[in-house]
């Protein structure tokens, strides 16, 4: 009897809710921590990044129109589907990040719990970040937080699951869409996450995942005029981060600077607040 040959997966980009190869035809090899070949993953190009921004712009309009309750349920479903795939995530973390079985389990626990944490914020943020303002005159005046728009995210390079979710979730919880450049050497958990998102009712274009090199894709996204914000979390502090921040000034992008903390720390409102705009509405009373 012949040995059955395993069916291997083609690792693709996730753009506009679809799994696509890089338009450039490029790919690069990804290895485990001990040098074993894992996959040829798509090496996203400038065109891929631009396509992702187009998808993100369209997806953002749909996502922002969803009720906050609906967004919360969709994100909660992401947690549910992750839970059902936890063995796969743990295995991937063990192979790429060289962590023990126990640590991998803990990392996936934290990642799923973080999804739940942010899922709960969708319909509470407006009450915390919004206000009814007692102006000195006959006007009803209120402030509501609204999503900034399309956010480009340079995902953390080493913490390939919890770190990744910790930057995507605060952007999408409030109704933004994202173009995410994954960890270059550890992209596989991100690809698996894209499969989770594709089966969790997250509308197409809300999260677009590009595997590849932030040092090229980041530049294109930082200077892209239809991107409203850029998260430099995964870019090391230094000249390149400075370059991206300076490029982002071209259309007054909101910038989150390189992250130097520990993703395991309790999350705060900081990243949620990073990607919202306060809108204030006045209306006369009685006139």
């Amino acid at each position: 009897m012949t040995e059955r040959i395993e069916v291997r997966k083609t690792y693709k980009l996730f753009i506009n809710g679809a799994f696509v190869r890089s338009e450039s035809g490029r790919s690069y090899e990804v290895f485990s921590h001990d040098g074993e070949f894992l996959a040829n993953v798509a090496h996203a190009s400038r065109k891929d990044a631009r396509d992702a921004v187009v998808a993100a712009r369209a997806g953002q309009a749909v996502w922002a129109k969803a009720t906050a309750y609906n967004r919360g349920q969709v994100l909660f479903r992401v947690a549910e589907v992750m839970e059902s795939r936890r063995a796969q995530f743990e295995e991937e973390l063990r192979r790429t990040e060289n962590v023990s079985e126990k640590k991998a389990r803990k990392a996936v626990d934290n990642a799923i719990d973080r999804v739940v944490w942010y899922a709960g914020w969708t319909d509470k943020l407006a009450a915390i970040a919004g206000a009814n303002n007692p102006v000195a005159g006959p006007y009803f005046n209120f402030t509501v937080p609204e999503p900034t728009g399309v956010i480009a995210i340079m995902a953390p390079q080493s913490d390939s699951l919890l770190g990744l979710l910790s930057v995507i979730l605060p952007a999408i919880a409030s109704g933004n869409s994202t173009v995410v450049v994954t960890s270059f050497h550890r992209p596989i958990p991100a690809i698996t996450l894209s499969e989770v998102l594709a089966t969790s009712d997250v509308p197409a274009g809300v999260v677009n995942i590009l595997t590849g090199d932030f040092s090229e894709i980041g530049t294109w996204l930082a200077e892209h005029s239809d991107v409203d914000g850029i998260d430099l979390a995964g870019v090391p502090v230094g000249d390149f981060a400075t370059k991206l921040e300076a490029l982002a000034a071209s259309n007054i992008k909101r910038v989150a600077r390189p992250f130097t903390g520990d993703w395991n720390d309790e999350p705060s409102l900081y990243r949620l607040r990073q990607w919202i705009e306060s809108k204030t509405v006045w209306h006369p009373i009685g006139a």
Partner: peptide, 17 residues
């Protein structure tokens, strides 16, 4: 827009972002 004035315009107040 960061500020929307409905049936009004150019109103300002320190309590109003």
């Amino acid at each position: 827009a960061g500020v929307v004035w409905a049936n009004s315009f150019n109103k300002f107040d320190p309590t109003s972002p």
